[in-house]
Nucleic acid binder design. Sequence first.
RNA 1: GUGGAAUUAGCUCAGUCGGUUAGAGCAUCAGGUUGUGGUUCUGAGGGUCGUGGGUUCGAUUCCCAUAUUCCACCCCA
Length: 403
Amino acid sequence: MIQSLRGMNDILSEDYERFEFFISTASTVAKRYGFHYIETPLLEETALFKRSVGESSDIVGKEMYQFTDKGGNDVCLRPEGTAGVVRAFIQHKLDKKGGIHRFYYHGPMFRYERPQKGRLREFHQFGVESFGVASVYEDALMIMMVADILKELGIGYRLKLNSLGDQHCMPAYRDKLVGFIESCGDAICEDCQRRKSTNPIRVLDCKNEKCQSLYTDAPKLINNLCEGCQSDFDTLKSILDQHAIAYEIDTNLVRGLDYYSKTAFEFVSDNIGSQSAIAGGGRYDRLIEFLDGKSTPAVGFALGIERLLELIVMPESVREGYYLGALDEESLPLVLKAAESVRRTQKAVVEYDPKKLQNHLKGADRINARYCAIIGENERANHTIWVKDLVEKSESLIPMSQF
RNA sequence: GUGGAAUUAGCUCAGUCGGUUAGAGCAUCAGGUUGUGGUUCUGAGGGUCGUGGGUUCGAUUCCCAUAUUCCACCCCA
């Protein structure tokens, strides 16, 4: 038997209902905030991700589905959504056009990781990107939008917040931290030794207890922000306070993608296992120019759809449409005809096997139909269709001409 | 990528200290005297016990490999 590739799932029936419900809910919220849909290719030039997400990141370093196509191009299945949207933004010269551009998107992303619950090799994200707004109010808008989406879906969460600083304060802090780490010498774990050069900020949330005890005195980025970053961070906190959005400052929160600066946030759920981040995002003011566009402030976020699916509280399903069946073989053509006209306005499902009324009613019940429409000997003789409303429990004989 | 656990019917799981026809609940299908559902009763179908090797007179059970899923690490959405 041929199976789907490891970490790549089919989404069917009930799961898809949730999936669809999520997409429509999130899209509706995004549109209410003034965002427009954008669709970008699943396949992009490898260089795009190397330059945006960053070569030092795990995503680019070891998780990309990378190959050479028949034309000899070095390409990748997209591991995240922002890079493609930024590429499109620049390619269509919206950076030069100026003004504000707000996009939302959803679709599959690919990362070659070891699968686990909530961690798939093909997974789906819903994301938004906002270009041209430098104000920290836009950062707050992002967080409010995620909060709105999760609220409409009935999902509880904790919000973690941090500021990563900008090109003025981050490099200085990084040097200071690396200096501190070096002062620890060989006392720290192997992972930290490696992180010291790849992503020094990550050592701060090392799980090793010995490392943690050494790091209690480590310099914290939050205490080393420059004036601009500090005041934006303070403003952001006060906006969230005013909107009653609870948050916790997590000075160890580091986004794994190199393009983030200033605001970084993550929504986590305590009910889905160890892969608990359900949404993450932040500001990336420098990315557009890194990709040869005109310097444009930007901020965005992405939600992991599969991680949300089991948390979604679906609205109660209502009975709808028709179930149509025949009591004998001779009635079937008339049933098909009736179904055809019902379908012009409503759902109509036909049972082809003639069977007893009782079994038809069971069948109608099973597919959650509102009406059970049956044709048998009597109906044929009188040119009527017997229809039972499964909610009202009322029944009537309707002339075939009215169908 | 590292360490660990699991894999038996469509689903959730029993079970076999290695020995004839491998069980349950739910689901499916069919009936309960001739046209009334969701919450009844009866019955039936459905499994080469994840896959491939090995040990054995004999393996679903023991051993090895492999695949997948799950847990922790890692990472992130």
